[in-house]
Amino acid sequence: MTENAKLANLDLDLRQIMLAQERSMREMQELKEGLNKVLSSVITHADIPEWVDLKQACQLKRLNSFNTVKQHFWLKPGCGQKKFQRICDGRIVYNRDEVIIPWLSVTSENLLSYLENCGLDKSCLPEKLRKELEAAAKRLDSPVPMEV
Results as ranks from 00 to 15, higher is better:
Ser24Thr: 06
Ile101Glu: 03
Glu30Thr: 08
Arg62Phe: 12
Gln59Leu: 12
Asn9Ala: 08
Arg86Glu: 10
Pro102Ala: 07
Lys138Tyr: 05
Arg96Cys: 15
Ala20Ser: 00
Val93Gly: 08
Gln81Cys: 08
Ser24Met: 06
Gln56Gly: 01
Ser41Thr: 08
Leu54Gly: 14
Arg86Ser: 14
Glu147Asn: 10
Val42His: 10
Lys131Val: 07
Leu120His: 11
Thr2Tyr: 04
Arg23Val: 09
Lys61Arg: 11
Glu27Asn: 00
Leu35His: 01
Val99Lys: 08
Ile43Glu: 02
Gly34Leu: 11
Cys58Asp: 00
Glu109Leu: 03
Ile17Asp: 01
Ser40Trp: 07
Gly119Ala: 05
Leu140Arg: 13
Glu22Pro: 04
Pro77Ser: 03
Pro77Tyr: 03
Ala136Asn: 10
Gly78Phe: 09
Leu39Asn: 09
Met25Val: 12
Ala8Gly: 08
Ser65Phe: 06
Ser123Arg: 12
Phe84Met: 01
Ser105Tyr: 15
Arg86Tyr: 09
Ala135Gly: 01
Ser113Glu: 14
Glu50Thr: 07
Gln81Met: 13
Pro102Thr: 14
Glu33Cys: 08
Gln21Asn: 10
Leu112Cys: 06
Phe73Met: 14
Asp53Leu: 08
Gln56Trp: 05
Arg91Gln: 10
Leu120Thr: 00
Lys6Leu: 00
Leu125Thr: 02
Ala5Val: 07
Leu31Asn: 09
Asp121His: 15
Pro126His: 14
Asn4Pro: 00
Val93Gln: 02
Ala8Phe: 05
Gly78Leu: 03
Cys58Ile: 10
Ala20Lys: 03
Ile100Val: 13
Ser113Trp: 00
Glu50Lys: 13
Gln29Leu: 11
Met18Ala: 13
Gln16Pro: 04
Glu134Arg: 10
Ile100Lys: 12
Met25Asp: 03
Asn9Gln: 04
Arg96Met: 12
Lys128Gln: 05
Glu22Val: 04
Ser24Lys: 04
Ala57Cys: 12
Gln16Lys: 15
Met1Gly: 13
Gln29Pro: 00
Lys122Glu: 10
Arg26Trp: 12
Gln81Pro: 03
Lys32Arg: 11
Glu116Leu: 06
Leu140Glu: 07
Ala136Gln: 12
Leu63Cys: 10
Glu50Val: 08
Leu10Trp: 00
Lys76Met: 15
Val69Met: 01
Ile92Glu: 04
Ile43Ser: 02
Arg139Glu: 11
Leu140Lys: 09
Gln59Thr: 04
Ser41Ile: 04
Asp47Thr: 09
Leu35Arg: 09
Glu147Phe: 05
Asp121Pro: 08
Asp47Phe: 04
Ser105Asp: 14
Gln59Asp: 04
Val42Met: 15
Leu112Trp: 12
Met18Ile: 14
Asn36Gln: 09
Lys138Phe: 11
Cys88Thr: 15
Arg91Ser: 07
Gln29Thr: 05
Arg139His: 09
Leu31Trp: 04
Gln29Phe: 03
Pro126Met: 12
Lys128Asn: 09
Glu30Phe: 12
Leu120Arg: 11
Ile92Phe: 04
Ile100His: 09
Trp51Val: 03
Lys70Ile: 01
Glu3Lys: 01
Glu132Thr: 01
Glu3Ile: 04
Lys122Tyr: 07
Leu39Glu: 12
